[in-house]
């Protein structure tokens, strides 16, 4: 598991109260965490601050899984 994916899963687990061991790379982030559109916006800010990066929204088009999101984060690190 990549460092970004691991940190992403730990942050998601902490923030949304979902057991980290149940979160897999291929899982849909939004479905698995049960978050709405407003929480999705908040999650973006939290990720940017956690990784000290900026992720333009258009780079998240089509991103659904933890693995895809970790890859998008890595592109900006």
């Amino acid at each position: 598991m990549s460092n970004s994916l691991e940190r992403l899963i730990q942050l998601s687990s902490r923030r949304y109260g979902v057991e980290a061991t149940t979160l897999k790379s291929e899982d849909d982030v939004f479905e698995k965490l049960g978050i709405d559109s407003f929480q999705a916006v908040e999650l973006m800010s939290e990720l940017e601050m956690e990784f000290d990066i900026e992720i333009p929204d258009y780079e998240l088009q089509g991103v659904r899984t933890f693995g895809q999101l970790a890859a998008a984060i890595d592109k900006r690190r």
Binding site: V41, M44, S45, E48, M49, E54, P56, D57, Y58
Partner: peptide, 10 residues
């Protein structure tokens, strides 16, 4: 021109 969103830190 990008329509992107920015966080509080930015």
């Amino acid at each position: 021109l990008t329509g992107r969103s920015i966080n509080a830190k930015k």
